[in-house]
Amino acid sequence: MLVLLPPSETKATGGDGPPLDLDSLSSPELNPVRGKIADALTELARDVPASLAALGISERQADEVERNAELWTSPTLPALRRYTGVLYDALDITSFKKAELARANERLAVASALFGIARATDRIPAYRLSAGSTLPALGGLRPLWRPVLEPVFAAADGLVVDLRSGGYAALAKIPGAVTVRVVTEDARGQRKTVSHFNKAYKGKLAAVLASTGRAPSTVDGLVKVAAKAGLLVERTGEHELEMLTGE
């Protein structure tokens, strides 16, 4: 099973590993595009105003440009320790026991505008780049990623649970992947998509799927695993699920 997480704009600083080495990352067939984007980001970082505009950030976030300038030289962390924020707080891998962490390292991966996909243990530097960014030297990211990333996803073994946000889902399709919509239900039984608690609940689901003893191989099996953990998950289509927040 592969559980594909969305990345986060916020990332842990520093690291305890050597500088970025593309050859050490999973899915080496993605390395030509990874290298091209990384080089474009570091080159763009020489022009701070242009970087701010391309990345869609303000002058108060100029330190993000400095991170990009140091992509090839800064220390690295495993992907699951690099990304931070609401979803990763809910995932809470620091609470996993040894066996659970081993399962999580096998099952979890993060969608990335820079790396395409980063497996849990792939060591990556801090950086700033979003799926919707347009780099002056390369243009939009979708034409770069889609031809090479979709075959990687197509080759994934077992069930694929796609928790990516819309922008990252647009970078590459995953036919047959299970998608999850986080919803709330009013007194009349009408449901609406949740935005505030969306990341937290997806993080909780990812934690359950990552740590459970036997990975589910079917959609119905996934629903049963979630229910056993106390999550309200319902099947609404062949590959679609809704998770109720109870909020």
Rank of each mutant, 00 (worst) to 15 (best):
234 E>S: 11
231 L>P: 05
88 Y>S: 05
240 E>I: 02
163 L>W: 07
100 E>K: 01
38 A>Q: 04
10 T>G: 15
175 P>K: 07
180 V>M: 05
230 G>P: 08
94 T>I: 07
196 H>C: 11
97 K>V: 14
112 S>P: 03
25 L>P: 05
26 S>D: 10
95 S>T: 15
78 P>F: 09
32 P>N: 07
238 E>Y: 04
129 L>D: 00
183 V>C: 14
38 A>C: 10
180 V>L: 12
21 D>E: 15
34 R>L: 07
210 A>H: 05
147 P>W: 13
220 D>L: 10
221 G>P: 06
117 I>D: 01
109 A>M: 15
110 V>H: 00
41 L>I: 11
73 T>K: 13
39 D>K: 13
76 T>N: 03
80 L>A: 03
7 P>F: 02
224 K>V: 15
113 A>N: 03
128 R>S: 12
92 D>Y: 06
131 A>Y: 00
93 I>L: 14
110 V>G: 06
137 A>E: 15
194 V>A: 13
135 L>N: 04
132 G>Q: 10
69 A>W: 02
213 G>D: 14
165 S>D: 02
154 A>D: 14
181 R>P: 02
109 A>Y: 03
101 L>K: 03
171 L>G: 02
13 T>H: 09
245 T>F: 13
94 T>C: 09
55 L>P: 02
157 D>F: 08
240 E>A: 09
111 A>F: 05
217 S>M: 14
143 P>I: 01
128 R>M: 12
199 K>S: 08
67 R>N: 06
11 K>W: 08
93 I>N: 10
110 V>K: 01
67 R>A: 08
215 A>R: 04
204 K>P: 01
244 L>S: 01
232 L>A: 15
86 V>A: 12
45 A>K: 01
82 R>S: 12
175 P>D: 12
88 Y>A: 10
127 Y>N: 00
8 S>Q: 00
142 R>P: 02
142 R>F: 04
71 L>V: 10
58 S>N: 07
5 L>P: 00
146 R>Q: 12
26 S>Y: 01
183 V>L: 06
73 T>I: 11
112 S>A: 09
86 V>Y: 03
44 L>I: 08
154 A>P: 06
65 V>R: 01
150 E>L: 08
247 E>K: 11
156 A>F: 13
194 V>E: 13
59 E>Q: 15
191 R>Y: 04
1 M>D: 02
